[in-house]
Design a protein around this nucleic acid. Structure first.
Length: 214
DNA sequence: TGCCAGGCCCTCTTTAGGGCCTT
């Protein structure tokens, strides 16, 4: 007997997800850019129960801008395993979990492109912490990950623009957002589907949406 | 050779333009 993971997945709790972050050679896989690092944390019931971090060799030299931006040098990538090897392991790590990233459209493009290269697929659904933060924290100075971490007084170790560090910060931001929604709207358990709806709901209709889940 | 992202969201909008986010 089979059933649809993706259909069932939306009713899973929103604190049961994999939160991921890519470092890449640039902004667009359509322009030939590749992943150079993947970091992710797995949350179950709001607790970190697993993590994944791996550099990967894209097969060409990265620009000096990317070396400076990420701190990942061509020398570090020279001995790293290929994207194919790493992404195959990562596909096993995420399984059919629902997925979260900060500006998820970016990470989803690279995840889709890298998995297509090795004919692997995932069964979960993406949502975006940035789109939700824009709705919940309209008074924040901006909605960059680093700014939101400071705005919400979220712990960080000072490392930015590395995949595991950014995925950990995104995970903490995600949990803070879930707590803020629970406290403000009196919701006990937030399904992933509600966070997906929230990411697409016009700001003027957010209160009505969340109040209806009480 | 020279090109160089894409989706969301606001507004001086919808027959459009530009800032925000991600690397």
């Amino acid at each position: 007997m089979t059933f649809s993971h993706s259909a069932n997945g939306l009713s899973r709790p929103a604190d049961n997800v994999v939160i991921l972050d890519f470092e890449t050679t640039g902004l667009s896989p359509n322009q030939g850019d590749r992943a150079i690092e993947i970091g992710a944390v797995k949350l179950q019931n709001g607790e970190i129960v697993g993590q994944f971090q791996q550099l990967m060799n894209p097969g060409f030299r990265v620009s000096s801008f990317i070396e400076g931006y990420t701190g990942i040098s061509n020398n570090m990538l020279r001995t790293a395993p290929s994207c194919d090897v790493v992404m195959n392991e990562f596909a096993d790590f995420i399984g059919d979990a629902n997925l979260v990233a900060h500006n998820a459209s970016f990470d989803q493009r690279f995840l889709d492109a890298e998995l297509e290269q090795i004919n692997r697929h995932y069964g979960g659904t993406f949502t975006c912490s940035m789109l939700i933060a824009r709705r919940l924290y309209q008074d924040a100075p901006n909605h960059k990950l680093g700014t939101l971490v400071d705005y919400k007084n979220i712990y960080h170790n000072g490392v930015f623009h590395r995949a595991l560090a950014d995925s950990e910060m995104t995970a903490r931001l995600w949990l803070v957002m879930l707590d803020d929604i629970k406290q403000q709207y009196g919701i006990e358990t937030i399904p992933f589907a509600l966070m997906m709806k929230l990411a697409k709901t016009p700001k003027a209709k957010i209160a009505a949406l969340l109040s209806s889940y009480r």
